[in-house]
């Protein structure tokens, strides 16, 4: 564990902390701006993974009605069920791991960014003392910039937002993001799960924000807004701004999203006819 911790510090955490400090220096010692810039850099760098994950997730969601049919049909034959599920995945060209693997790869990066912000904030003396061990001795600008200026707008980046604006923004941005990826299901059980997911994450993170330094809340907000933007580019507003049903028969998820995207891109009119 010690070895892994050292490698983690050396290869991932320390570089991120130093970059964060340098960005802060470039931003006229504004740590809030530094967090925003670094978060955007990281999110842009991991954009291919994010896009892959979103597309896979969307494809998986679109497949859910068919999957539900199979589950219902082969409820008593587990082996046949597994075979049919695999066949469906194969036919659809989807790997079940397609959405999990990009997420797993991004997860350590998010943790490292999270840790870098916490370490650089160094709100308690113990953290501040250990910050020196992460700074690159050959980069004078790093030493000249520390301690970082924690003030940003009305906030002290090292303490929670006492005006409770950040927890609301974190919760709201996360809710919007969740809502965009949620699919309305006819299955009451799944609908209930969807609702739980929709509210649990935003409430949980809003609650965290009440306790955590504002710098972390800023990171979450920027990250959420970025995700919302990417999500919009790939799938549109999703369930955030539901589109009227335009196909008379019960639509598959694929046709719904295709139709929504067409509408949003102005290719069809409200009756589903292609514009001339």
């Amino acid at each position: 564990m010690t070895g892994i911790g050292q490698i983690w510090d050396l290869v991932i955490l320390s570089p991120l902390i130093n970059v964060l400090v340098i960005i802060s220096s470039v931003m006229l010692n504004n740590f809030g701006l530094a967090i925003i810039v670094l978060t955007l850099i990281i999110r842009v760098a991991t954009l291919p993974l994010t896009v892959k994950q979103l597309k896979s997730t969307r494809a998986m969601q679109a497949m859910q009605p068919k999957m539900a049919e199979i589950q219902k049909k082969y409820a008593r034959d587990r082996q046949k069920l597994a075979e049919e599920q695999m066949r469906l995945y194969k036919e659809s060209g989807i790997s079940p791991a397609g959405c999990a693997i990009p997420m797993l790869i991004q997860f350590p990066i998010w943790i490292a960014l999270f840790q870098a912000i916490v370490r650089a904030l160094a709100a308690v003396p113990e953290d501040f003392m250990n910050l020196s061990l992460h700074l690159y001795t050959s980069w004078p600008v790093v030493y000249a910039s520390v301690p970082l200026n924690p003030s940003f707008l009305w906030l002290d980046m090292a303490t929670p937002d006492k005006f409770l604006i950040l927890p609301i923004l974190v919760g709201a941005s996360m809710w919007v993001q969740q809502k965009m990826v949620t699919i309305t299901s006819t299955d009451p059980k799944q609908r209930q799960q969807n609702q739980m997911m929709l509210w649990m994450m935003p409430l949980m993170f809003a609650f965290f924000t009440l306790q955590f330094p504002s710098g972390l809340a800023l990171y979450w907000i920027v990250s959420n807004l970025f995700s919302i933007g990417i999500q919009y580019r790939i799938t549109g507003w999703g369930e955030l701004i539901p589109v009227k049903q335009v196909v008379s028969n019960t639509p598959t998820m694929d046709t719904r999203f295709t139709k929504r995207n067409e509408l949003q891109s102005g290719k069809t009119d409200s009756d589903g006819e292609k514009k001339s």
Binding site: I111, F114, Q115, V118, R119, L121, A123, V124, E126, D127, A158, T159, P160, F208, Q211, F212, P213, L216
Partner: peptide, 9 residues
């Protein structure tokens, strides 16, 4: 990572 304390440590 963060525990109950707001400051990470």
């Amino acid at each position: 990572l963060v525990g109950c304390q707001s400051t990470g440590a």
